[in-house]
Computed example of a mutant assay.
Amino acid sequence: MIRILGIGPGDKKYLTEDALWRLGVATVVIGTKRQLETVDDYLRSTTFKQHYSGKLDELKARVEQALIKNNEVVVLASGEPSVYGIGEWIKTQFDDEEVKIVPGISSIQLFFSKLGIPMHDVFITSAHGRTPNWELWQQVQKVCLFTDNVWTPVSIAKHLLSLGIDPLLHVGESLSYANECITSCKASELPIKNYAFCVVVIDYER
């Protein structure tokens, strides 16, 4: 069995009790360097920790190799595995019935709680490696998205302005970490700088 374990947005305090219990009994745990560092305090000394670079083909090979000798393999997933995480991808690579997901707190949930605004009317998407659907995005009240190094908060703000609109933007950087930074302003007022590990909310209502 492959158990995909959501470990939250980053800070250890957002690990769920279920995640902590499963980490404590895990035989094999696979994750990136940062993910393994996050959970290291909760693993047994006998737990085999397998690092991968973040590339999906490498992850698949690590999981296949671990399954040869182990009945269950834990794969770490940042945030919530089912929200633009690796959950669906792993299900396409392995027998769907052999994949189980342990939910985690998403950076989106954390961001909205910090902003103090509701999530029930938000369209959740990702610009990571994708072409934004600007036409669709303008038909909803709020858009929340994960950014990448092409569609950064700055490039998103510039494109919105080119469409003749100037909505309120919320930019969450490094959420849950010590260097967390939240910026809320109109697209036209967004500071031009390099933003890292971002979640962006486009709020057309305010």
Results as ranks from 00 to 15, higher is better:
E205C: 10
K158H: 13
T131A: 13
K193W: 02
Q141W: 00
E180Q: 14
I156M: 05
L136Y: 04
T147M: 10
H159D: 02
P167D: 03
V171A: 10
N133M: 05
E173W: 12
M119R: 07
Q141K: 15
W134D: 00
D148Y: 09
V199C: 13
L160M: 10
E189S: 11
V154N: 10
D121K: 11
Q138K: 13
D203L: 04
I165R: 06
I117L: 14
A178N: 12
M119H: 02
E180I: 07
V143A: 08
Q138E: 05
Y177M: 03
Y177K: 09
H159K: 15
V150I: 11
L163T: 03
T125Q: 09
G116E: 06
N149P: 04
N194T: 13
Q141R: 11
L169T: 04
P191L: 06
H128V: 09
G164I: 01
T125E: 13
I182H: 13
G116N: 08
G172A: 15
P191H: 03
V199R: 08
K193P: 09
I165V: 15
T152S: 08
K142F: 04
I192W: 00
P132L: 01
S188D: 05
K158S: 06
L161C: 09
F197A: 14
C144Y: 08
V154P: 09
A157V: 04
T131M: 10
A127G: 01
L190D: 00
P118G: 05
L145C: 10
L175D: 07
V201W: 02
G116Y: 08
V154K: 03
L161F: 11
L163D: 06
C181M: 14
G116K: 04
R130S: 12
L145I: 05
S174D: 11
W137C: 02
A196K: 15
T152D: 03
L160H: 09
S188P: 07
T125P: 11
P167K: 07
M119G: 08
L168Q: 09
D166V: 01
L190E: 03
Q138V: 00
V171H: 02
G164C: 04
Y195L: 08
Y195D: 03
Y177Q: 08
L160I: 12
C185A: 10
W134V: 07
L169D: 00
N149T: 14
G164S: 06
L175P: 15
S155A: 07
F146H: 08
I182N: 12
S126W: 11
